[in-house]
């Protein structure tokens, strides 16, 4: 697994495809959401795509990622099919949780997604436990606990950090720091930078969470460290939330000015590819079109799938 960041066509193209899959998938949610075909609270990843894509590029299907409430970007980056996710949002039996979970509860065991939590914080501990299991079982498996800056408020974050450091649990703590906990600015919910404190417990990497190459490089180093030492690491990615905390409207908080040119992970990578002569504008447009057709298929798949039978209500319990 290479950690270096020489931008090749193969690498750039792979990352760009994932970034665009997430962006375009979610952009298709926006117009249909007000019509209530998806009856589930969504937390969009738009603007933050570089974080899951840069990290998951290092992961194999059996490596695990634990997620909180903002699920779509990580799920797609980790390999969940668009149809499976779309059908879950549509509440259909073919969804990844047969319509029982909705946007905040996605899972895909074959792609290393053991589930996600609508409650903030708790899933951080699950990643530590899974990594402990991997170590005890001497398994070649990476585990990531993915969470937001708001989750770093919670006791369970600090308890997990301490436990992982104390017991040498080879887990990656991955913070998608969008500077916001719902409508609260980071300064209003965190007194100091948790990355600094965490540095006393484990090695900390920082990356620009609007730049997939920055995230990928830092994640590569962090994973190499975890593999080499068997110790945990923290990767803190400062990124930008473009949309409101929940729902499909653009964010309008005064404290969260978004520059859709400058802060765009897709635009950044495309510029890099174009200026290095690794892609042409026409190719990029073609890629966008291909992904659009895949999303069409996912939506058609979801729309044509049956709703779950209420007779299933009291199953799996």
């Amino acid at each position: 697994m290479m950690t270096g960041n020489t931008l090749t066509r193969e690498l750039g193209w792979r990352l760009l495809r994932k970034l665009r899959e997430i962006r375009q998938f979610e952009e298709r949610i926006i117009p249909v959401y007000p019509t209530d075909v998806m009856v589930t609270p969504v937390h969009l990843h738009i603007g933050q795509e570089a974080v899951p894509v840069g990290v998951c590029d290092h992961l194999r299907p059996h490596d695990l990622v634990f997620i909180g409430h903002r699920t779509h970007g990580v799920a797609l980056a980790k390999g969940m099919s668009m149809g499976s996710l779309m059908a879950e949002l549509y509440g259909r039996t073919t969804g990844c949780a047969q319509g029982f979970g909705g946007s905040m509860h996605v899972c895909d065991p074959a792609n290393g997604l053991p589930g996600s939590s609508a409650l903030v914080g708790g899933s951080i501990a699950l990643g530590v436990g899974a990594a402990l299991a991997a170590r005890l079982g001497k398994r070649d498996q990476l585990v990531v606990s993915c969470f937001g800056d708001g989750a770093a408020d919670a006791g369970v974050f600090w308890e997990s950090l301490n436990f992982a450091a104390l017991k040498s649990v080879p887990v990656l703590f991955l913070c998608e720091d969008n500077g916001l906990s719902n409508v609260m600015r980071k300064e209003d919910h965190l007194h100091a930078d948790p990355g600094v404190v965490a540095g006393h417990f484990m090695q900390v990497w920082r990356a620009d969470g609007t730049d997939v190459l920055s995230v990928r490089e830092a994640a590569g180093e962090a994973f190499a460290h975890i593999r080499a030492t068997g110790r945990p690491a923290l990767l803190w990615c400062a990124t930008k939330r473009w949309m409101k905390h929940q729902g499909v409207e653009a964010d309008d908080l005064a404290c969260n000015p978004v520059d859709r040119e400058k802060d765009c992970p897709i635009r950044k990578l495309e510029q890099a590819l174009l200026s290095a002569g690794l892609a042409t504008q026409a190719e990029i447009e073609q890629l966008g079109g291909e992904i659009e057709s895949e999303i069409d298929a996912a939506i058609m798949f979801a729309e044509q799938s049956p709703f779950p039978d209420p007779g299933m209500l009291a199953t799996e319990v």
């Binding site: 509440g91 319509g99 029982f100 979970g101 709703f307």
Partner: peptide, 8 residues
């Protein structure tokens, strides 16, 4: 459950 039909 999440899906509207199941909620009902």
């Amino acid at each position: 459950p999440a899906s509207g039909i199941l909620e009902k």
